[in-house]
């Protein structure tokens, strides 16, 4: 266990110092601030625009950073050779991967907290006081998307080269965003078999499930604990699945720098 935390701490330290950290923070905070401004000047309902743009800024900035870092922490270790030295020490390969994931998750949560502080700033600037528990639930579930994508990109990075892994991770991210809209856009004439296939894919890999802003802000449906539990379980299952695949794939791989 201490080995796992040692690797997680090392990863946290490295990512915290990564050149992408400050730009990602600035871009995220900047987009959140812009969503605040756009909602103020927008023609539609203030809250709808604020939450639509805000969640999109939060989701996209964090997801891209998660994909990039997930890829980077494994690929950089391969490239600079520190992977070889670390695995030559008494560290199991799965422990190494899980430690890396844990470190990445910690940095992502840290980044998420900084974004939430910026969000609170928007609340204060419009005189709305402290943010509601709903906001915490909303951004919490969105952070789960980051964590799922981090596990996904670690999986690809552990079995493929950097460019291939990055391509596959981005492609999967896009697929996760468009699977549900494709399912909804199917015409009534679509054959039943095709519909079922699309339904299965959208059911298994649908990142919209993590965005609860639509149901609450647009349809005024309150957040139900059971519903939140379902979404959290879904996220954890996906994370566990990708990490398990990564561990199995990485276990068999020869480390040739």
């Amino acid at each position: 266990m201490s080995t796992l935390f040692a690797i997680a701490f090392e990863t946290f330290l490295r990512l915290r110092r990564d050149r992408v950290f400050i730009p990602a923070l600035l871009v995220g905070v900047g987009l959140l601030a812009l969503s605040g401004l756009a909602s103020y000047w927008g023609v539609e309902e203030f809250f709808k625009i604020l939450y639509d743009l805000g969640t999109m800024a939060y989701l996209f900035t964090g997801s891209i950073v998660a994909l990039f870092w997930g890829n980077k922490i494994v690929s950089d270790s391969k490239q600079e050779g520190s992977l070889e030295v670390q695995l030559a020490s008494p560290i199991g390969r799965s422990t190494w991967l899980l430690g890396k994931f844990l470190g990445l998750t910690t940095v992502l949560i840290f980044l998420g907290i900084l974004f939430l502080i910026a969000w609170q700033g928007i609340y204060f600037s419009y005189g709305m006081g402290w943010m509601k528990p709903f906001d915490l639930a909303l951004f919490g579930t969105l952070t789960l998307v980051w964590i799922v994508l981090a596990a996904l990109s670690i999986f690809f990075a552990s079995i493929a080269t950097q460019s291939v892994a990055l391509f596959c991770s981005i492609w999967m991210f896009v697929a996760g965003l468009i699977s549900a809209p494709i399912m909804q856009a199917l015409s009534p004439e679509t054959p039943e078999e095709t519909r079922k296939v699309v339904q299965v894919i959208a059911g298994l890999w649908n990142l919209h499930l993590f965005n609860i802003s639509q149901s609450v802000v647009k349809y005024h449906i309150p957040v139900v604990p059971d519903d939140m539990g379902y979404r959290i379980c879904y996220g954890l299952l996906l994370t566990g699945f990708f990490l398990s695949c990564a561990c199995v794939g990485f276990q068999r791989k020869d480390i040739i720098a």
Partner: peptide, 29 residues
């Protein structure tokens, strides 16, 4: 492997950690 030490041909060290941090991490492992 606790009893092993390895010095590779080229310097295979994490570039954005300090000398002290690298050795501390190594001992923790």
């Amino acid at each position: 492997k606790r009893c092993f030490g390895y010095m590779p041909e080229t310097n295979k060290l994490p570039t954005n950690l300090t000398c002290e941090e690298i050795l501390k991490h190594h001992l923790r492992v």
